[in-house]
Structures are given as C-alpha cells and as structure tokens.
Design a binder for these strands. Structure first.
Lengths: 88, 88
DNA sequence: ACAGATACTAAGAAGTCCTTAGTATATCTT
DNA sequence: AAGATATACTAAGGACTTCTTAGTATCTGT
C-alpha cells in the first residue's frame, strides 16, 4: 500500500461520503460488512479489473479474467477457440 | 425450460424453504428482488458455472469463464500463457 | 362453469449495510 | 515522557433490501 494512504483517503477515492469514508472502509477491511454493488464496481474500475473478478473462486480463474479484461473482441474469440482445443 | 417445471419446484431444487419457494422464485424471475449469495451459489452449482459468471459484464467474458470452469490447473495455465502471447 | 394448480403480489418481519458519534490506539512534537 | 494530533476502530440506530406470510389472480383441464 502506498505510504500515507489512510482508510479515509481510500474511501474518498472510491467516492464515499467523506463524513463516513473511514468508518466504512474500516468495516470492509475488517470484514464487518461487505461493500454494496456500486462500491464494488468503483473498486473494480480503479483496479482495472471486471467486477466478476471479486467473485472468483480460484486464483487461475481470476488471473484469466484479469488478463482477458483488455482484449478486444477478436482476441477474446481467439481465447475461446484456444480453450476449445484443450482436451475435456 | 423442462415441461412441468414450476417456480415451486425450481425453488426447492435450489434448497429454498418449500413454504415460500414459489414466492421467492417469482420475485427473482420478475426482478422484484435479487437472490442472496447463498442462492446464487446454489444456482451456479446446478448450472455448473462459477458464481463470477453472473457478474460478467460482457458475453465473451462469461463464455470464457464458462469454458474455463472445468479445466484442470495445467490447462488453465496454458490458457493464461496463450493470452499473454496476444498483442496488447 | 368448476376445481385444482400455478403465478403473482402486498405488507410486515428479518437481515444487511450505512450513518453517526464517539473511543482506542498509534504517531508526531516539544 | 506528556500532550497533541492523526488514524484506526466500534456500537448502536436508521435506511434499505430481502424473506416470509397469507392471500388474490390467472391459467388449465374436465
């Protein structure tokens, strides 16, 4: 984490109300509550990954999503074609 | 949809309380409410896709997740390697 | 038309997250 | 070290969402 980054600033970067950004970030970091969809979406935008990334159940799945995220349509179709060549 | 499949039966297959399976499935189908995570997970298990599938924002992304879901680790690594060969 | 099955809904209960206001802990500054 | 300031953290109630209940509406077969 970047030096000097506080829960407060982190929350503000996510567009949370500055009046409660710190409390909310703390609740998220400590697992007390989960961010709502809007917040998840903002996090995914900032990290430049798809929202689905956060629901992945294995690390390879998430890596593949991350790597795929910026490909164009043609390239995604190539990936799909490649997967189909693999033995079931 | 299979003939004779009712909202009631569908909900029971998902492990919902039979006393309200019909009401809940109806609320989901008509967009009145959204299923909680536990229910989403059960749906994903039955459909044999990862939960992340439901959070995909484009159809190629979801297809790739679906196709990847049953690959073994070695194969997933091959997919990752292939993606890295694509021009950025 | 009637009976039974299925679809659908309103409204209150229950649960989750957000907000507020504050305490605890860490980190400066003198 | 003591006090001041910054940061981390939390309890409790409010707001919002879903679940449950109980019932009405619509469809289907006879």
């Amino acid at each position: 984490m970047k030096k000097g980054m506080t829960q407060q600033k982190l929350g503000e970067l996510l567009g949370l109300d500055p009046n409660n950004a710190s409390a909310r970030m703390n609740q998220y970091e400590r697992g007390k509550h989960n961010p709502d969809y809007t917040t998840m979406k903002r996090i995914s935008d900032i990290l430049d990954v798809p929202v689905s990334y956060f629901y992945c159940e294995d690390e390879y799945e998430s890596s593949i999503l991350e790597a795929t995220h910026h490909l164009n349509t043609e390239q995604k179709l190539l990936v799909l074609a490649f997967i189909k060549t693999l033995k079931p």
